[in-house]
Design a protein around this nucleic acid. Sequence first.
DNA 1: TAGGCCATCTGGTCCT
DNA 2: AGGACCAGATGGCCTA
Length: 353
Amino acid sequence: MLTLPYEDTDVTCKPWFGGNYPRGSLHDLEQDPRYNLNASSNQVREGEEEGEEEGMSEREDEEGDEEERENDNQQDDNGLPRKRGQRKNKIPKGRLERVKVRRHEANARERSRMHGLNDALESLRKVVPCYSKTQKLSKIETLRLAKNYIWALSETLSAGKKPDLLGFIQTLCRGLSQPTTNLVAGCLQLNTRSFLTDQNGEVTYPSRANYDNMYPYPGVELGTPPGHGCSVTDSTKPSYHSRPYSYGGLYESYYNNTSPEGGRGMNHRDPHMSPPLNFNGIFSVKHENPVEYRKSYSVMRYGSVSSSGSLSQPSMYRVLPEGRFSFDSNLRPGGPTFPSGTQQEELNGAFHN
DNA sequence: TAGGCCATCTGGTCCT
DNA sequence: AGGACCAGATGGCCTA
C-alpha cells in the first residue's frame, strides 16, 4: 500500500502533506486529546498547545521553556493565572514552520528508506526458491526461506555430495508457516504429503519407498569431507539408505540435532552460528542486471580475489539470472561429482514456476 | 470478525 | 544540526 512514489522526496510542498496525512499526522495530534497534556509531571508540555500540536521535539520544548522563564509573569493571555511552564508567547510562526518542514522531510526520508528496504526484500524474493509475482511471500517468510536456502546450499556444499532433493526441500521449509510450506511444495510441484509435519510443525519423513519412487538416485556414493562423519556401514549403498534422506551422516545429524532457526544445535556447531559456508564464495545469487551477472559469473567461474579477498576460489554453484541455481561440475577436477544434468534440471525445474 | 500483514507516522537514540 | 536507524503505534486491507 504505497501512497507515494518512491522518488517523490520533495514532499514538503505537496498538498497531501501537512494537514492531509492519511493517519497519525501532525494534524491528528492537534485533534488527539492524548496530547493535550495537563499532567503536572510534564510541565514543559503543559499549555504548549501549538508546540504540542505541531509535534515539537523535546529539545525545542526545552528551548521554549527557557524563553518562557525569561519572560514569565503571573497571567496568561486570558488574564487567568498562568500555570507553571505555560508559555506566554506563542511559538514564532517561522519556527513552527521549520518544525513542520523538518518533520515532513523526516517522514519522507523514512518512507524512502522503507521503500529501499522493501526493494531489497523484493530482490531477495526473486532469488529464493519459489518466486511468484502473484503470490508474494511475506517479509518474514522471505527472510526465513532465504536463510534456509543459504543453509541448505551450504550443507550441500559442505557435504560434498550430490544433493538429496527432498532433504534439500525439507531444509528449505524449516520454520516456515504451513501456508508457505504449501506454497513451496506447490512451487516445487511436490505432493505436500511429502512434507509431513507433526503437531509441533516439525518436518518428519515420508516413507523411504515413497521417496525412492519419486527420486530414484543411482547408488553413487561420494566422498565425505573431513569433519563430516558418515555413518554408512555398507559402502555399496548410498548413504541415504542408512537413514532416510540423510547426506551421509551430515544431514542425519543436521535433521536430528539442528535447525536453521538455531533452536536445536548441531552436535559440532554452535546453534547460533551462521550456516556452514566452508568454501570461500561458494555460491552467489541471481543478478538483476545481465551484464552484472555475467561479470560476476566470470569471476566465480575463473576465480578471483576481490578487494576484500572474499572470493578466492571459483564457485561450484551459480545462480542463474532467473534465480535458479546450478552447478558447474567442471570446476573441481578430481573433486566430488555433483548433480548430473538431469538432477540439476530437476532442482532447477522445481525451484521456480 | 479476528488475525496477519503492511505502510506510514512518530519520537528517541546514535552518529557524523 | 541533521540524517540514519529503530521500534512503537495506528489504521487499512485481506483472508479464513
